[in-house]
Amino acid sequence: MNRFSYVRARDAREAVDVVSAHPTARFIGGGTNLLDLMKEHVTHPSHVVDITRLPLKGIEDTPDGGLRIGALVTNSEVAWNAEVKRRYPLLSKAILAGASPQLRNMATTGGNLLQRTRCYYFYDVGTPCNKREPGSGCGAKTGFNRIHAILGTSEQCIATHPSDMCVALAALEAVVRVTGKDGERAIPFADFHRLPGDTPQLDTNLKPDELITAVELPPEGFAAHSTYLKVRDRASYAFALVSVAAALTLDGGHVRSARVALGGVAHKPWRNPEAEALLTGKPATREHFQAVADALVRGAKGFGHNTFKIELAKRSVVRALEEAAGREGQP
């Protein structure tokens, strides 16, 4: 860990000011990822700006019937919040599938969105990584890539986004509220994270001085028919090889609308509205779920160790949709 200055921000304005004045400064909330990155010498902030005293800790209804979750609400609080459990069980389930109780007690909503990839090469400063050190190369592409992406990869980077919560937020079409030098704005979840392209060092479309203040959930929570399926190498405390947030609204046995987001397969939670639309108006049967699964991973590319994820993703989508529809195990 390098030497750094610690600043405790009294309000959002001060936090933004410090960060915009110092290009390598970082906000710190729960610190569950930032501290690791600093200890591994991956991140060397000149300033660590403590935002934990800011008034961003509430969960409240929005005028349109949705829910606003403050950026500093911990993952545990969100997961166990009665309104979240009742109206957005998908979000609760996704959060509880990740990390450990200790980490969830510390980790914040905003921080979860900003956690960085778990790519081995990104974490090991003795190896090349374009995300950590642009231009140094990608070790994973030709190296050990069991946990890496199969969709939306680039020549420069095949890392995945590690969050479970974000996969649910993508399916729920949450909106990220941010504030910065140029004022406030709202970013639709699909536009929040980026694909690696030629700039794998950028995980999100946040401007350098912007601070997340809240995540807003739209009124539709898919409470009756949704599930989060996480497939991993052990029963707990492992990142997803593939995860699926599946959410349906049903009209009798037919699908009115469908949302499917994949985790563990790309640089961001992966969605494909065209694939989802294949279900609209169709009976909620395995045959139709299979068609969505096939369409979702169309164009997927494996790199050797992770090629199995293509088939695994398809099977996981079918399983998750079956569970969401409540028709698991039926033809």
Binding site: R118, Y121, G126, G139, G143, F144, R234, S236, A238, F239
Partner: peptide, 21 residues
């Protein structure tokens, strides 16, 4: 897990070297 290109063990931490929980 070895990366044979680098000749280096890559999952050298408790997050990625799995033992049962």
């Amino acid at each position: 897990a070895l990366d044979h290109t680098l000749g280096r063990f890559m999952n050298h931490n408790y997050a990625e070297y799995h033992v049962p929980v």
